[in-house]
Computed example of a mutant assay.
Amino acid sequence: MIDPHLLHVPRLGRHPGRFRLAGTPVITVLLGSLASVVPLIAQSPVMPTFGLLLLLSWRLLRPELWRVWIGLPLGLFDDMVSGQPLGSAMFLWTVALIGIDYIEHRMVWRSYKQDWLIATIAIIFCITGGVFFARITGGGEIRLSLVAPQMLWTVLLFPFIVRQCARIDRWRVMA
């Protein structure tokens, strides 16, 4: 009988393809952004921002994977799919990634709780910034208390999303 632990060991001389290595994280973030088009009827935004969650999870899990500018194209896709004012997620996601990069260069090591705190600050910044951009582009009077449940759900869902990204990452690097 074959040992199930040996099934996850890469074979010698076999490496995953370049598309699998580089494309998997990008595709997961794009699919996360597409979650905003799921027809959900609600009085206020309660669905977590999955695109942002996946972006932050990949960035904190694998810092060497992306450069800071990746927030521009992924944010553009999120803006086009979610209906936010064009450029808001592009700006907010890029600033969040710059902030994470700045923090990362100052810390010698990070723990899981620090990653969760960094993600919480980035989530609150991006959702609050999204409200600001919606207000200045004619979205009406939107209060922060209206998006508070969305912030809460997004922050609480972060550990689960990081765990799923780690599981996908193990598959991504195995041959």
Rank of each mutant, 00 (worst) to 15 (best):
A166R: 15
M47R: 15
F158L: 10
G32S: 04
V29G: 00
R172G: 04
L60I: 07
V162D: 00
V162C: 03
L60P: 06
G13Y: 13
I142T: 08
D3C: 01
V95Q: 01
F133C: 06
I124V: 15
V131E: 02
R135H: 10
M47Y: 10
Y102I: 09
G71Y: 02
L21S: 02
M1C: 07
S145E: 07
G140E: 04
I118P: 01
R14Y: 15
P159D: 01
R143Q: 07
P25S: 04
R106H: 12
V162A: 03
C126V: 15
W116Q: 11
L156A: 11
M47T: 15
Q84S: 14
L152M: 14
S111N: 09
L31F: 03
V162I: 12
I124T: 13
L86K: 01
P48C: 10
I124A: 11
D79W: 03
V29S: 01
A148H: 10
S44R: 15
P48H: 07
L86T: 04
V81Q: 05
D101K: 12
T49C: 13
P85D: 03
A166L: 06
E141I: 12
S36A: 14
D79I: 03
A148E: 05
L117S: 05
L144V: 01
V9F: 13
D169E: 14
V46Q: 09
S111V: 09
F19M: 14
F19C: 01
P10Y: 11
A175D: 14
G129V: 08
G83P: 01
S82P: 01
L157F: 03
